[in-house]
């Protein structure tokens, strides 16, 4: 943590945000959310502000690898954490499988909820792979392992509202990407074992 210029009595602090593998040191008003810090201070406008109240999911980023809403995350409280935004999910010029699937299968219309959908889906696929159940999971006992079927995808992606109503293609895109990620993981595991 950068040495705080602040404390209980001051209202701003110097912080370091690790965004997409890059460290940014900046002073922030304590009121500044992570979302506003990304958009207004670091010019990373890919993360969108849809409601600014935790009610739509457009601002979804990964914080320490987990999907989170940057609109309800104070920037000062994100000091020192690893943040991944839509600008950081591709591997150079190679799109992440989720990005490619949204592009190919038209998993959007206006595109405004799209960065949040993509970040959410990337983390969601990992959550599922880790065995996390969802509200669509009939049997939540640890022994049961639900497949990532359309109903599971729908429930797990329900924190990302899309007003254009692109849900049908979003589900298709996430399903395709999840298969690819799984195949990549399997291939990587085989390679590691060989």
């Amino acid at each position: 943590m950068a040495p705080p210029t602040s404390g209980a009595t001051t209202t701003s602090s110097g912080i370091t945000l690790n965004v997409n593998g890059e460290k940014h040191t900046l002073p922030v008003d304590h009121r500044t959310t992570l979302l506003d810090a990304l958009r207004e201070r670091l010019d990373l406008t890919g993360t969108k502000k849809g409601c600014d109240q935790g009610q739509c999911g457009a601002c979804t980023v990964l914080v320490d690898g987990r999907r989170s809403l940057s609109c309800l995350q104070l920037a000062v409280a994100a000091d020192g954490r690893e943040i991944t935004t839509i600008e950081g999910v591709a591997d150079g010029d190679r799109l992440h499988p989720v990005q490619q699937a949204f592009l190919d299968l038209d998993g959007y219309q206006c595109g405004y909820c799209t960065p949040g959908q993509i970040c959410s889906a990337i983390a969601m696929i990992e959550e599922h792979a880790a065995g996390w159940p969802s509200a669509a999971t009939a049997d939540v006992r640890p022994e049961a392992t639900p497949p990532l079927d359309p109903d599971e995808i729908r429930e797990r992606m329900s924190g990302n509202l899309c007003r254009c109503g692109a849900y049908v293609n979003i589900v298709r895109a996430v399903a395709r990407a999840a298969d690819e990620v799984r195949a990549d993981d399997t291939a990587a595991a085989k390679e590691a074992a060989a």
Binding site: G54, G57, T60, V63, R66, R67, S68, L69, L72, Q73, S120, A123, M124, E127, S134, R156, S158, G159, N160
Partner: peptide, 9 residues
């Protein structure tokens, strides 16, 4: 309750 993102926070 809520959403995957909110439950993570």
């Amino acid at each position: 309750a809520a959403s995957g993102q909110l439950r993570n926070m």
